[in-house]
Amino acid sequence: MGHFLPSNHSSKANTLTMSAVQETAFQEKIDAELKIEAKDWMPDKYRLHLIRQISQHAHSEVIGMQPEGNWITRAPSLRSKMVLIAKVQDEAGHGLYLYSATETLGITRSELIEQLQMGKAKYSSIFNYPTLTWADMGAIGWLVDGAAIVNQQSLRRTSYGPYSRAMIRICKEESFHQRQGYEIMSKMSNGTTEQQEMAQDALNRWWWPSLMMFGPADSESAHTSNAMKWKIKRGTNDDLRQLFIDRTVKQAELIGLEIPDPDLKWNPKTKHYDFGEIDWEEFWEVVNGNGFCNKERINNHIKARSEGQWVREAALAYSEKKQNGV
């Protein structure tokens, strides 16, 4: 790595620490679009940023099983039941890959779960909204997974190798989820009057929270600048949000549903949709724990984990006995 040092060693150069040299090499690698792997040197802040972001993503998959799990036993046909179970099962699988990707950064799954349960780690706030009707299964698949895909597609190019590979795998499954959701919405908006009302009501309730999924406006986002420099994030919150809106408006029109935003309008100059003001007060309320279901989601997670404690202990005790030849 000597070639990163200035050729004539001035006194200033002598104080150049090893970590600064490593950091330069690290940034060069990132700028060259090379992936950072688990054993490579990385700045502590990069590592911490990744732990925070990937674990938040893992927790979102896991907590996201609850609002949809709420309708599995009531799914109205054998087919829709199987599709929904498969979807929730995929989410558990995504949670697993992402916990594994986070573990490559030197933290264990149980530590991550503890952070979640203590409220130190966040998950996507969207899952703090209640699922009230079957149409919500459609809205979640179509909008929530639709928004997640926009974000995840961009993250396939993230600079951290294990995260990027997890995203590539997850994106393949997410597009099936989005189709599943859109199919429910489409069936309902072409169904009975009651079904149409449920579909529109679900869109009304889920639209704005879906836009909030991309996070605060770029001007307000605390984490964006380093994350962009390190290529952890590959698109800004505002750009990704706009991409999602442009895609989704047309899909809503196709099935005769109305986006609940009177300011939504095609702008021929920018070739994008202009849209109304997002209620950031609501966003921060939910992020800070005051959403409709925050407490319930975490309590359910704690309950399931504590009820499974004896099972995990038994499995461990049994495997130790077998290893010791008992």
Binding site: V62, M65, Q66, G69, I72, T73, K81, I85, A86, V88, Q89, A92, G93, G95, L96, Y99, N300, H301, K303, A304, E307, G308, Q309, V311, R312
Partner: peptide, 17 residues
């Protein structure tokens, strides 16, 4: 299917599903 997310750990949620 009532187990959904209530298994003793994630791998078991997947197995039960």
């Amino acid at each position: 299917s009532q187990w959904v997310y209530k298994g003793p750990f994630l791998e078991e949620d997947i197995a039960l599903s």
